[in-house]
Amino acid sequence: MAVVFDRPHALVDIPMHYCPGCTHGIAHRLVAEALDELGIEGRTVGISSVGCSYNNYFYFNCDMIQAPHGRAPAVATGVKRSLPDSIVFTYQGDGDLAAIGTAEIVHAAARGENITVIFINNTIYGMTSGQMAPTTLLNQVTTTTPYGRDPKLHGNPIRVCEMLSTLKGPAYIERVSLHDIKHIKKAKEAVRKAFKVQMAGKGFSLVEILSTCPTNWGMNPLEALDRVKNEMIEYYPLGVFAGEDLEV
């Protein structure tokens, strides 16, 4: 019988710890498929960050390094500068990348560091139980904005792709979403392209993936997907922010 769907080699065959309806699993799979299809698992070093995906070194079959909170781009820089022929990616959430790690991501991007960043934006801190993230939408209720995010009190959500695309360093930046099959396919292409940009030595690539957190949003998985589609995309428009014409 022909196998039409299988686990990518770059994904370890163990159950993941993520909540039902969380899209981390899909994002992991997209990364693993890219490593398989591009034949780069053997020379890839992944950097786990701090947040729900802190231990995705259990799930990825390539060599992995667990980085301090927010510092993944700096750790990735150290690896890439040590092993220029390797493929290096970071996998970071919104708190990790856009709050505590803002300096590291901005400067890695500004240097045009030849790494790939997978940025999971679910507008909330998952692991520590639902606090405000730098990407939390206005009026969104979290455990630290119990009356909704008020720009006068809590500031405004950060659009990372837009911000980083003002720099000269990044070769490729795209925002994608995982709320339906069509968009997942598009996300897969973006992740592949990001790795191909790195393989071609073109410089910094980042894919922001709009994701769900049904548990901390207080929704069921379907409601969560709808929220991405109906609320998040409005503030975080999908598309290519750098490197649209880049052929790899």
């Binding site: 070093v45 390094i65 301090p68 700096a74 820089t77 150290g78 300096a103 400067h107």
Partner: peptide
């Protein structure tokens, strides 16, 4: 590499040492 901060520098060290 002149890092953006001491924090970044030690984490670049962390990466290179890991490698």
């Amino acid at each position: 590499l002149q890092a953006e901060s001491e924090v970044a520098a030690i984490n670049m060290v962390y990466g290179a040492a890991s490698a």
